[in-house]
């Protein structure tokens, strides 16, 4: 029974990782056709970095992810603090709305935002992308910070208040240090979600600001492009580093 369940786990992990491994291996493939092995080569990485439009899209995506993660971490942290500390009317509604944003299919969020932006006459580009990305990252930051606040000694902020600290001072000196690891983890998650999003970006981006996932999307719809293997490998390594950093921050803070 034991070996059976172990081999089952191993099999499923194998299936989950085979495509990723194939992608990484083929990114170093010299063959042009993309299916057969033609020896080791870095030519696809080279052609990737010689592709001006691709490099521009990469910078655009990085800047978008950086700003979206930062804004959503700021707003998300404040939201979590408000939900944790304050009693106010409509608290349940606020909670419910965040839950709905997280659960609802991305495409529903995408078209609703597209509708809003077009009716307001907002030009689709960096600003519309930023607003949309912050919105779908927000619930994830709120959850990460709330989880951190849940295991927090309530007497600390009260002590700060008794000692005469204002709400703002107490938040700055007591709460922020406590939630710092969650803020960093939430930021990293937001950054990655933004870097990888296809569905929402397809709707709310314009020709003035091309981002990486959409560039990949237009490439892979028609046939196979070996450059995508190289790009995918780079993105994979990048995400892995982000994820490991976030796990490290969270596990270190627990000790």
């Amino acid at each position: 029974m034991r070996w059976l369940s172990r081999s089952y786990l191993a099999l499923v992990y194998l299936l989950l990782y085979v495509p990723i491994i194939v992608l990484v291996v083929f990114s170093f493939n010299d063959s042009r056709t993309g299916y057969s092995w033609g020896g080791l080569s870095l030519r696809w990485y080279e052609s990737l970095f010689n592709n001006h439009a691709m490099v521009q899209a990469m910078w655009n995506s990085l800047w978008l992810a950086l700003t979206a993660a930062t804004v959503s971490t700021l707003i998300g942290a404040l939201t979590a603090l408000a939900l944790h500390r304050y009693r106010f009317r409509g608290k349940k509604v606020l909670n419910g709305m965040l839950f709905v944003v997280m659960m609802s299919p991305e495409i529903v969020l995408a078209i609703s935002l597209l509708g809003l932006f077009l009716l307001l006459g907002l030009q689709l580009g960096y600003v519309s992308l930023l607003l949309a990305h912050v919105t779908f990252c927000l619930p994830f930051v709120v959850i990460t910070v709330m989880a951190r606040l849940a295991g927090f000694d309530e007497r600390l902020p009260e002590a700060a208040r008794d000692l005469g600290a204002s709400d703002f001072t107490m938040t700055r000196t007591v709460l922020i240090p406590v939630i710092m690891p969650a803020l960093m983890a939430g930021w990293l998650l937001g950054f990655t979600l933004s870097m990888d999003d296809v569905v929402v970006s397809t709707f709310v981006s314009g020709p003035s600001y091309e981002i990486l996932p959409l560039r990949i999307y237009s490439m892979v719809r028609v046939g196979l492009k070996p450059e995508v293997n190289a790009l995918g490998t780079l993105l994979l390594v990048f995400s892995l580093v982000m994820l490991m950093m976030s796990q490290w921050i969270l596990s270190r803070s627990k000790q």
Partner: peptide, 19 residues
């Protein structure tokens, strides 16, 4: 290992299946 895919580009992984 299970949440790694959640953090990686789903478009790229779909493309890998095509290979």
């Amino acid at each position: 290992l299970l949440i790694v895919p959640f953090w990686t580009n789903s478009l790229v992984r779909t493309y890998a299946l095509k290979l």
